[in-house]
Amino acid sequence: MSRPTIHVETPGQARSVERALARVRSVAVDCEAAGYHRYSDRLCLVQLTAAGQTFVLDPLALDLAPHLRPFLEDPARVTIMHGAPYDLRLLHRDLGIRVGALTDTQVAASLLGEPAVGLQALLERHLGIRVSKRFQRADWASRPLPAEMIEYAAGDTRHLHRLAEILEARLEEAGRLSWAREEYRWLLDNSFDGGNEGPEPDPVARFKAARRLDDRSVTALREAIAWRDRIARERDRALFRVASDAALLAAARVRPPSVAALAALQGFPSRLAHQKGGALLKRFARVEGLPARELVPYPRPTTRGTRPDPEEEAAFERVKEVRNAAAGRLGLDRGRVMANQVLREVVAAMPGDRAGLAAVAEVRRWQVDVMGGELLDALWKRAAG
């Protein structure tokens, strides 16, 4: 029987977590964020299991960074996660923590060809444990959290040590543990936010139906998106919980003459229209007064260079056949063996040997070991004769 979950909200309680972590060489970690309900996807909970004890820590109540950083950043102490990339980014962005060593049970399962790699499916399959999905979309930023939500969150790490042991034992037996460890290292090197470069994408590009709108309506939609964003930020609510995309699209297309007409628009929140609709109508009025030359149309699709020539396409099909055959031999998903995008990078680079293949962005050493020779043979088949 597992020990009771400890909910950590004070520095004193956090120091007890430090004492527990100091005694172990591995810790299971999961995070909960608020993105589904709130404007920001800020970190709301950190769950840890170490030596059979599970803690649920509240980053909204205290700064967790000084309590967790020495342990999670230690390369000699393994952090066990399931589906690590998102949580790695959360820990780095909100706590400034870069995990030092990783095991990802989702990656491990994918390299074993598991039919389903979600945590619930794996726990039931390997440990006979059924996990409730009751709070999967709960508002983790709400406070106080009820006991049943805290216990639900604890379930995400309570069994990860046992699951990792089972999966990694099977990987070792299959000769694939080194593959998994390479993937873990790649995640640590590539999952942290590096800052967004280049211009922000045009927000109307998410509205595919807006392609059919005239330029004035598209410009109005852009204003409606900015209006909703401002309200969502002020209220700390997810965008769709303020107004749906369909409601904004309808309002931009019709551009109602009054708040009453806006409130009567099908699908538009009536209360929001009466509370904040005046500001939206002012935006629409400004759009109506713009000369045609100042209207901004729906963004044209960007062209990514020239279309591949026939030889490049033929080479891509040949390396894809090699990848598909390898996936069949290994019993793995084709994208797990090598994604199509990476295959195209290989074709573009035209490496001449295994070292050159390994140097292609996102190509792993284990992939070169498994099918590097066949990929190179297929790549150079036309040139070789």
Rank of each mutant, 00 (worst) to 15 (best):
T10K: 07
S16L: 10
E18C: 13
R23E: 15
R25W: 09
R25G: 15
V29C: 14
V29E: 11
D30H: 09
D30A: 15
C31D: 01
A33Y: 03
Y36P: 00
S40A: 14
V46T: 12
F55M: 08
F55A: 10
D63A: 14
R69C: 12
P70E: 13
F71A: 13
D74K: 10
M81Y: 09
A84Q: 06
P85I: 15
R93K: 10
A101F: 01
L102M: 04
Q106A: 11
A109M: 06
L123Y: 02
L127I: 06
R130Y: 12
V131F: 10
K133T: 09
K133S: 14
D139G: 12
D139P: 06
W140Q: 05
R143P: 03
E151N: 12
R162H: 11
I166G: 07
I166R: 08
E173V: 04
G175Q: 06
S178E: 15
A180M: 03
Y184T: 00
W186T: 06
N190V: 10
S191W: 12
F192E: 02
F192Q: 05
G195F: 11
E197W: 12
P203E: 03
R206S: 14
A210N: 00
A210Y: 02
R212S: 15
R212K: 14
D214P: 13
V218Y: 07
V218I: 08
A220R: 02
D229H: 07
D229V: 00
R230E: 15
E234G: 04
A238Q: 01
V242L: 09
A246P: 00
A246K: 11
A250S: 13
A250M: 02
L265Y: 05
L265E: 11
G278Q: 14
K282N: 12
V287E: 08
V287D: 10
L295T: 05
R300K: 15
G305R: 03
R307F: 09
R307S: 11
A315T: 07
R323Y: 06
N324A: 13
A325V: 01
G328A: 13
L330M: 13
A339H: 08
V342N: 11
A349H: 00
G352K: 09
A358F: 00
V363R: 02
W366T: 03
G372H: 03
G373Q: 08
E374C: 04
L376E: 06
K381A: 15
